[in-house]
Write a protein that binds this DNA or RNA. Structure first.
Lengths: 202, 202
DNA sequence: TTTGCTATTGTATGATCGTTCAACAGTGGC
DNA sequence: GCCACTGTTGAACGATCATACAATAGCAAA
């Protein structure tokens, strides 16, 4: 007689946490923060609701873990960049199309931004990661300006570029017909080039 | 013997709808989309849950009414502007600090953006209003450039300015310490002035 | 004072919510 | 095959959810 399939697969703690975080991201992407429920996440992960409390302590703690995963992916793109050889095109690619920046993640970001704005722990972490992101971008921008014999406020241009990219990304994620991807890229490049050539001061 | 206070105040349909929309905005501002519940809104409005269905048909229809109210306020600031005499400072003030752009409304916007991205009716309306906003801004920008003897792509600069303002506003609303209001204003002005003087092409 | 109109209340309903925790079950060591 | 360890399940619980709708009540006209 055929052997019975196991009812569930035992995983290591890290594997299980990774699966729950991934399932959470999918639920947020599909339904926003209102789709972030214990039952919906368990259905997506193919597991049971007790696991969330067992591995994370609470649903809120799971959201914090989602944030860490998402933002680490944003930083990874910049980590791979050589500040001395980076091009404006490469920078623009990172700020517009980096980790978790497909428009399907709009509702993940909306949920995280909402939570960061009221959760002191997440806000502190966001501040740290965002500052790191700016500083790395500033280094690359300063190196590019230096190559053109120019001196710029790299930090100011980094803030400018990140904000512009966020705004463009948000607009086209909300309604794709309002702005084409190529157009967004062009606008970012224009601003970076203007900043590097002295046409614009940040 | 003292006369009894009436249990409730009868209002006209328009008055009652306005109160419910206002209460909804307050609930969204405080708790985001998860605070947008029938009971929370009724507590805030000082009324009873039956009123929401009576006046709006459903909670979702109430959210659509909230959107209309919020976005009309955004347009109002621009309507008051004379395109022939507007200054870069005035435009920047409108895109950064116009109607419902205090940072306390962050979660209202996050909720609306989430809903617009999946609700075809709201998305169509948003497209219309957003396009109107861009066109009005473009007229003012073109008039400013004309005064300087320059020809610009007003529409392109309008997209640039709106996106930059959205990104800056979002960043400082999420975490106030990441960006000062004055700094955001300066960056917007730099970009507008660079666009008007030919230092930057959109 | 009475009456009609209709704004408004709030109970009932079935469903869903997050957490708790006793019991179950996968699996490797002996 | 037995057993211990511990990952995992899912019912129970009290709370909250949105909508339906019968009954109540404000108030102006007659």
């Amino acid at each position: 007689m055929a052997e019975k399939q196991p009812r569930f697969e035992r995983l290591t703690a890290d594997q299980r946490r990774e699966r729950l975080v991934e399932a959470s991201i999918n639920c947020l992407a599909a339904e926003g923060i209102q789709g972030f429920t214990v039952d919906a996440i368990c259905r997506e992960a193919g597991s049971s609701r007790g696991l969330i409390v067992h591995h994370f302590g609470s649903k809120d703690a799971l959201l914090a873990a989602v944030y860490a995963e998402v933002f680490q992916n944003v930083l990874v793109g910049l980590d791979a960049l050589d500040p001395d050889t980076a091009t404006p095109e490469a920078l623009v690619e990172i700020v517009l199309s980096g980790g978790f920046m497909d428009r399907k993640y709009l509702k993940v970001w909306l949920a995280l931004w909402g939570e960061i704005s009221v959760n002191p722990g997440m806000q502190a972490e966001h501040r740290t990661l965002n500052t790191t992101f700016r500083e790395k971008l500033a280094l690359s921008l300063q190196a590019m300006a230096h190559k053109r014999g120019k001196v710029i406020d790299g930090h100011g241009v980094a803030i400018l570029l990140i904000s512009l990219a966020d705004g463009l990304w948000l607009q086209q994620s909300i309604d794709q017909s309002l702005l084409a991807s190529d157009r967004a890229k062009e606008l970012c490049l224009s601003v970076v080039n203007a900043a590097l050539t002295g046409g614009l001061t940040a």
